[in-house]
Amino acid sequence: MNIFRFAGDMTHLISILVLLLKIYATKSCSGISLKTQELYAIVFVARYLDLFTDFISVYNTVMKLVFIGCSLAIVWCMRLHRVVRRTYNKDVDTFRHYFLVLGCFLLALFVHEKFTFQEVLWAFSIYLEAVAILPQLVLLQRSGNVDNLTVQYVFFLGAYRAFYILNWIYRYLTEPHFGRWIASVAGLVQTALYADFFYYYFISWKNNAKLQLPA
């Protein structure tokens, strides 16, 4: 464990807690893409299959349970909670996310570390996570100005993978034979997808104005 990875995990945890806070405090999920939340639930279930077979550390196991639990709870809340689900606007959340699932799975069949059930699903979860934010970013652009908690959620979600990139650089420099090319390349793509969001986030923060993404 290094400080970059720990900062990344904490930033990721904060993003999920901010989202839970927004839904719980406002009893509303307006501005949140259910499709992105579903993709994240698939990412965590597909990636943490080793939860019961490989024990890494208490921290690792606890965080996996928290991530799986929270992502499933958010999807449950947006689909089934009697108050929250009425605030979900499916007319604006129209990204065809199943194509993302199919594309990432096909890519994982060809590009993986080892052709085993667990490794193919691990690569699938890495690719899917890189593009999982797309429905949410599209929804943000469509819905113009959104509430601050949603913006903070996306910001922390983008920042966590940026910390992970520093973590991979650090591990590459300090650990012999450290090569996580699949995760590193996908992590770069994932962070690049946030580039314009980060730019407009910084502009709105500098001008102390609300975030305005160009339509």
């Binding site: 990875r5 995990d9 990721h12 990636r47 080793d50 490989d54 890494i56 690792n60 965080m63 996996k64 991530f67 570390e113 080892k114 490794e119 691990w122 992970y164 973590n167 996580r180 995760a183």
Partner: peptide
């Protein structure tokens, strides 16, 4: 075959 290191990252 090549030993794939366990995925110790989240």
């Amino acid at each position: 075959g090549r030993i794939v290191p366990k995925h110790d990252e989240l």
